[in-house]
């Protein structure tokens, strides 16, 4: 099967945790840490789902999402956004920008795994 997930995140420990969780579920997990180049990487990799951190060096997750949604090819790509800021305004902005799912850190492992599974199934 081997569904493809791209994780855009700069915190090494969190990368390790998410990679562990999704790999165990059978996902192919690629990671990218730099915000500035994230969109190019996503275009090139064409993942089934993107897990996107909100605060990234170079370019914020919100800007990356907005850029993706502007591209017709990626308007339906499931994007799960994770944020450590957790303010109501951030959620609104993200939903406006077209996020598929929005979660605050710290997250429950089960929720992340379930969300990824649901989003991919929904997209199909």
């Amino acid at each position: 099967m081997g569904k493809h997930v791209l994780l855009v995140e700069d915190e090494v420990n969190i990368i390790e945790a998410i990679r562990f969780l999704l790999s165990r579920e059978g996902w192919q997990v690629d990671t990218h840490s730099d915000g500035a180049t994230a969109v190019d990487t996503i275009r090139a990799a064409r993942p089934d789902l993107v897990v996107l951190d909100h605060m990234l060096p170079g370019k914020s997750g919100l800007d990356i999402l907005t850029e993706l949604r502007a591209d017709p090819d990626f308007q339906t790509l499931p994007v799960l956004m994770l944020t450590a800021r957790g303010q109501a305004r951030d959620r609104e902005q993200a939903e406006k920008a077209g996020v598929s799912r929005f979660m605050t850190k710290p997250f429950s492992n089960l929720e992340v795994v379930t969300a990824v599974r649901d989003l991919v199934q929904l997209a199909q």
């Binding site: 945790a17 165990r24 303010q87 605050t104 850190k105 492992n109």
Partner: peptide, 25 residues
């Protein structure tokens, strides 16, 4: 506050995630 939240939540995310991994795996 936004910064503090971010700075506090980031390590807590790792702690929660790995402690759940340790517990559930």
């Amino acid at each position: 506050l936004s910064q503090i939240s971010h700075e506090l939540r980031t390590p807590m995310t790792s702690i929660r995630s790995f402690s759940e991994i340790l517990r559930d795996t």
